[in-house]
Design a protein around this nucleic acid. Structure first.
Lengths: 191, 191
DNA sequence: ACGATAAAATGACCACAGTCATAAATTGAC
DNA sequence: GTCAATTTATGACTGTGGTCATTTTATCGT
């Protein structure tokens, strides 16, 4: 059915235009009305594609999950620790390229997780879980902890790093450094 | 000056009434107008005390920081690992008593951290940092990692546990169990 | 090609957070 | 006690997110 195709295209157009406007003017300064008119549609139509304005951000979050898949692929040949570190470093650098927008995206992702409105974080964790599970099968990791738990911990420090950095970016310690330190603690254990 | 005293009292009254209403009807279903009239003030007055509706939640978050101080006191005599575990367990149980409200509070706390509008999380981390620093001084902990980094990691998995639990509470694994598992990973190290 | 049915678009409308010019109350100096 | 200055309270007003009854467009069987 062609209809489905057109719907997807329009949704994508709304998404791209929204992000473009958010980047230029800031999320709060872009009204849904403005997005709609930029796409040549009426305001009500926007809500046929995204139930709330912030769902555009969640959609962006989803695309990050796809990105994660690609990145993970890229470092497959490395040992698990380096693989994980590189993945996170790359995610962070993407984050840095548009930190204003991603701050909001991550805020919304977390918020929607609390509201059970999105499975974004779940997918993130599952991807990492698979990665670790594979490493276990190939005996390239030696741990007695469940892959899912490890994955949770890593995601936890990842998000925490982003928050930390936002708060403390006066002391201009690089965000990568902050992450690496936390990663090292988790890898080695506190004591 | 008495004025200051009265201002604090009114702010506190607004705060308490707000929380009461939020608990009864849910945050979204309580209008600022409703809060104001319940306090016998005009809507505009509310905004003289809290710049945004959500700042009531941040204020609640602050009171959690005070609570943390008290709890920390209580477990002073224990070894650092048990001390930390007990602190987090107790925080989690407070969370469970009003999870709907605290979900929003934590969402807003994280969001405000991203916006640099609040130092809530910082205070949380600093308190834990002090705790760990003390343990180092007393040689009751043996680690070569910086106290601040350890504290960050712990806060990270704490928040992450709360998020995880919200998402996965169909599989009714207890939130305490989820936290303990993650804590164990961090304490022992992944491999 | 026509009519019936379903899907999608529309924009007037509403609710509510937050603003702001004005009014009331409080303070302190004399 | 009076007045000026400052602080606090007020509620009409505004802007925007989101809704919904209505209209327009697409689909499909005949």
């Amino acid at each position: 059915m062609l209809k489905e195709e057109r719907k997807k295209e329009l949704k994508n157009q709304i998404f791209l235009k929204s992000i473009e406007l958010f980047k230029e003017y800031g999320y709060e300064n872009v009204t849904v009305e403005k997005i709609a008119s930029s796409c040549g549609i009426a305001k009500g139509t926007f809500f046929n594609y995204f139930p709330k304005k912030e769902h555009v951000l969640l959609y962006l979050g989803n695309s990050q999950d796809d990105l994660l898949q690609d990145i993970a692929q890229k470092y497959q040949h490395l040992k698990i620790k380096q693989q994980l570190l590189n993945i996170f470093k790359e995610l962070i650098s993407v984050y840095l390229n548009n930190s204003d927008l991603f701050k909001l995206t991550i805020s919304e992702t977390i918020r929607s997780a609390f509201k059970n409105e999105s499975t974004n974080i779940n997918i993130f964790e599952e991807t990492l879980t698979d990665l670790i599970e594979n490493a276990k099968k190939n005996n390239t990791i030696n741990t007695h902890f469940a892959s899912g738990t490890i994955s949770s911990v890593l995601v936890g420090i990842y998000f925490n790093t982003l928050v930390n950095w936002s708060v403390n970016n006066e002391k201009n310690e690089s965000i990568i450094t902050i992450f690496e330190k936390q990663f090292e603690v988790v890898w080695e254990g506190i004591e």
